[in-house]
Design a protein around this nucleic acid. Structure first.
Lengths: 198, 198, 198, 198
DNA sequence: CATGAATGAGGCTTCATTCAT
DNA sequence: AATGAATGAAGCCTCATTCAT
């Protein structure tokens, strides 16, 4: 790519650069191990601007880790059978962005020494995954089943972005989809989207 | 007796106390958020002794997370069908220990900002879980299937010890075992241990 | 009309607004605790204009505290017996101005960490009070007597604008005048203005 | 004096040195204009020790400015006529300590941009001076009379330690006592301690 | 051997000030 | 002429670590 020599005097661009750099760092090493100077250096600007634009490192983190708050189109009106698959894509979205994009889930996990992050992680997991899965279940142990499937998405994320286990790191969404759909059907008690078998 | 009232620990006991305190703290909040003074206070000794006995916080962490690595009896000679269930117990062991015991996986995850931890996490996951699962598979995508099941164990651990999702946090191993055995059978292509269905 | 809705101040008005805002802030919390952005916000203009118009915060302060220094009509030609009373009015003038006016003495006191302020405070005290009192005295210890009376005016000012002691804060000049005239007469060795006794 | 080459590894001595240095600086230029590094340099120790021994700059200030809290022997049982004189000594105590001692009143005044300091100043003034004066008065305007005399002590302090007016700065307590006793008698309506006239 | 005083590096944050638009 | 983006210095504070005692 053609890196511009210096992006200057552009509020929106600087803010975005800081946010991107923060997302990348936070996703890579978490909150504590990231210094505001690191972020600023990556963004190519002065560290003071973080406070100008975000108020504090903490608020920058909140904003950077809340990308997942994109409403997660929970299936407008197509068959609910495809909802699990769509959430799998959400949890693995990192691929499309490239590494620099930053997976909010990873960032939150790596920053979980902070109590606020644990809370945010918990509520975000519920809103994004558990709640949606739960609505599909019509069996005993609804909550447990939903959380078990959510846990799997968490684990897939960890394996890929933190532990870097080889097979899962190399796999793309389509490689995993058939397995996921089978297990989702089993846990939630729903029929799989098609009749495909891996 | 002539010994002063304040108990005078011998070298081994002090070392062990420090190690235990370190393990507990690292499991709770990870490397960065744990200070040597925290550990020393928990152990009831002076912080300097950490450097005397371990050289540095870093080496204390290495040793503490080594200790966390127990050989995991990989199924001595009983039916291999029970191996997944045994590894589920390993991943959920936290309950029996109480919080202070320290879940190796949790500690490593919370400290994953450190590159060494990632490597250790990766190799430990492989040795403990992936390798064992892999040996049970006799289908294409052996590695991927093994890692997918491992990812689930990771996720269950995270959901319980970090995110604290309600249903999974309250569940005990026996609540989860039936689901796990079904999914394991599905992913690994092995018959479930009994004919039980949840 | 073609002028944009946001009022476009002319140079003089902006300068005056900054000066007024500066005077008020400096009087309230002194030099160190006042930031240029505070002043600019109060004046409703951009902080840069402070540097454009005054060069630096320091020079703004100098000018603002110069403005505070009004010539103090040292008794044109009426009976000198009324001079102390007039100076009491000067020292308590804050009431008439309202808070925003800025009491020179208070501003200088609160900014006395700066050496320049101390000098200015010293010379201003001399010019305004000590010198005038001294000329009334025809006894030994002229200077000391004049300074003792000046010190009282300082203390009254501090009690009212900084320490906020209740009775003195609520009192108006007329409540204090009789006491002051008695003490002034005693210290300066002059007859009191009238024969009034409190 | 024979400055010790280096006072080392002595908790009490280091703490005392820091406190003395802090008192001096705070008395000289107030809270804002004093940096912890300044204090530490004056004390000849590392700035970190301020946090080790006092917790924060703020708590160091509180401790340093509370010296006046020495109970101020409010006249055990001798004639109350001597109380004003004793309080004059308190307000001028700086002489005995030398400049380095630090007058808490001065420190509080120079730090009055901080709201906490204003409160502390107010309550300390009341406890030390106003309340004691008030008890001597048996006339109307008790509170006002007491505050007026207190204001004078404040002003004398300011004139000597901040404004440095020449005559008052050179004077010692005995030079001022006769004037003070006369004025105190006048304001409080009490007979002067002896029959002395200046 | 053990205690704890001392240190230096680095973290977050705010401020006055300059420079491009 | 005026706005506000950018900067560098400095401030408070915490941490791991070393050094006397």
């Amino acid at each position: 790519m053609t890196t511009p020599p210096k992006r200057k005097r552009d509020r929106a661009a600087t803010r975005a650069a800081l946010l991107a750099a923060a997302r990348a760092r936070f996703t890579l090493v978490g909150y504590d191990a990231t210094s505001v100077r690191d972020i600023a250096r990556d963004a190519g600007v002065d560290a003071t601007l973080i406070f100008r634009y975000f108020g504090s490192k903490e608020r920058l983190f909140e904003e950077a880790s809340q990308l997942l708050r994109e409403p997660v189109d929970t299936g407008t009106d197509d068959a609910p059978a495809y909802l699990p698959t769509r959430l799998l894509h959400t949890a693995m979205r990192q691929d499309e962005d490239g590494t620099a994009g930053g997976q909010p889930l990873t960032a939150l996990l790596l920053s979980s020494s902070r109590p606020q992050c644990r809370e945010q992680l918990n509520s975000q997991l519920y809103d994004t995954y558990v709640r949606n899965f739960e609505e599909l279940v019509d069996l005993p142990d609804r909550e447990l089943r939903a959380e078990l499937l959510t846990a799997w998405l968490i684990g897939i994320n960890v394996a890929r972005s933190i532990a870097h286990t080889p097979a899962l790191s190399d796999a793309c969404v389509n490689d995993i989809t058939p397995y996921f759909e089978q297990v989702a059907a089993l846990l939630l008690g729903t029929p799989p989207p098609g009749e495909s078998s891996p």
